[in-house]
Every structure is written in C-alpha cells, then in structure tokens.
C-alpha cells in the first residue's frame, strides 16, 4: 500500500465522506445527492461500468472506501455532461467522477490495467515528453500495451484506418523519429514539475 494511502486511512479513520470532501475536486457536493438515479440512467457508458455515480455517492456516505477508490466507474467517464445537465440537485457529477479517479490514481489504488485509465496514462506520458501529442507514438503505445504479439495483431487490425489517416495527412510516419514538439520544452517541463509539487502538497494528510 502506498504511503499516501496509509496516511489518508490513518487521518480520516472511518470518515470517507470527509476525506472525499477534503481531497476530491467538487467532493463537497457528494452530500447533496438525493439518490434519484437520473445520472445512472443518463450515462452513455451505463451498461459498462460497475457502479453508477449515484451509487458511488451512496457508497462514499456509507464509508466504502476500498470499493469506491478501486472502482472502474469513474475511469469510464467520457465527459458528455448528460448527468450534470439532468441532475436535479445540480451536482457537478462529471467533475466529481474525474476528481475521484484522480484521487484514486494519486493514492495508487486505481484499478490496474483498466483500459481508459491506461489510455489516459499513456496520453499523459506522451504529452509530457514534448509538450505536444505525438499521434503515431501514442497509437503504437496503445497497440503494444499488452505485449508485442498483441501489439502486432492490433496494428494489423487497425492498418486500414492508419493508411487512411496517412493519406489524409493526419498521421506522419516520420513522427517516429522524434516528431514535432513545442517551442519551450523545458518551460513545459518546469510547469509540470511545479504543478506536481503543488499536488504533492495537497496530498499531505496532516
């Protein structure tokens, strides 16, 4: 178990709601849910995740820390904002879901190998390197995330689309050799480091 997770447990004991309110973006809204379920029904990914937002909120109030933070639900959010638009209590559900995902990730207890989480991670790594997204490398990283053989299979399955993208000049094979980057790469790295520092500070539980 990560240190930050241990610290959090020790600090909040059984009050997971309080923990969420203190550390999750818009977490103070969780208490306002009245369990109508409109978010659950409105989510286009509804049939695919384990717990609906409304259920996650109830689990938070019931102190089900492990189950919530290891849930795959918040990783599924596509930010369509259906839930926010329809929520009769105007809860910023999308933001809370992202906030929970982020918090679980920071504590190191987000579900391993969860595909949307993995895509986010790879996207970030790719982006942070040069300050620009390298589409080709990002695609390849995705194809090969489950090993070499699977990567080849994936690449073959997707080759039609890849060729199409190249013809449309949306994908440049030369990108494999370094690729385009932003003007002040160092500046970007400094910015990211500073942001990380601020985040780290927030993670302290004392």
């Amino acid at each position: 178990m990560s240190d930050s997770n241990k610290q959090a447990i020790a600090h909040y004991r059984n009050n997971f709601l309080k923990e969420v309110e203190d550390h999750v973006e818009d977490g103070e809204w969780v208490r306002m849910c009245m369990q109508c379920g409109v978010c659950a029904g409105s989510c286009p990914f509804g049939p695919h995740w384990e717990h609906s937002p409304q259920k996650i909120f109830m689990m938070i109030r019931a102190g089900k820390r492990e189950e919530v933070l290891s849930s795959d639900s918040m990783w599924m959010c596509t930010s369509c904002y259906n839930c926010i638009v329809r929520c009769p209590r105007k809860l910023p559900i999308t933001h809370i879901m992202h906030g929970l995902a982020h918090y679980a990730h920071r504590l190191g207890i987000a579900p391993k190998g969860q595909p949307t989480r993995e895509i986010a991670r790879l996207f970030w790594v790719n982006l942070a390197r040069t300050g620009r997204v390298n589409e080709l490398k990002f695609s390849l990283a995705m194809y090969f995330k489950d090993g070499f053989v699977q990567g080849i299979k994936n690449a073959l399955a997707m080759q039609g689309i890849g060729i199409g993208l190249m013809k449309a000049r949306r994908l440049n094979p030369m990108e494999l050799l370094g690729g385009h980057k932003c003007k002040d790469k160092d500046g970007i790295h400094k910015m990211i480091a500073k942001a990380r520092e601020i985040e780290e500070r927030k993670q302290k539980f004392v």
Binding site: Q35, C36, G37, V38, A40, G41, G46, P47, H51, S52, Q54, K55
Partner: peptide, 11 residues
C-alpha cells in the same frame, strides 16, 4: 423509458 432503479441498481 430509460433509467436505473436505484434500489439495488437495475438498469
């Protein structure tokens, strides 16, 4: 009608 029965969660 689309939605979720929140008592126990049924889509």
């Amino acid at each position: 009608l689309h939605g979720v029965d929140t008592e126990g969660y049924h889509r």
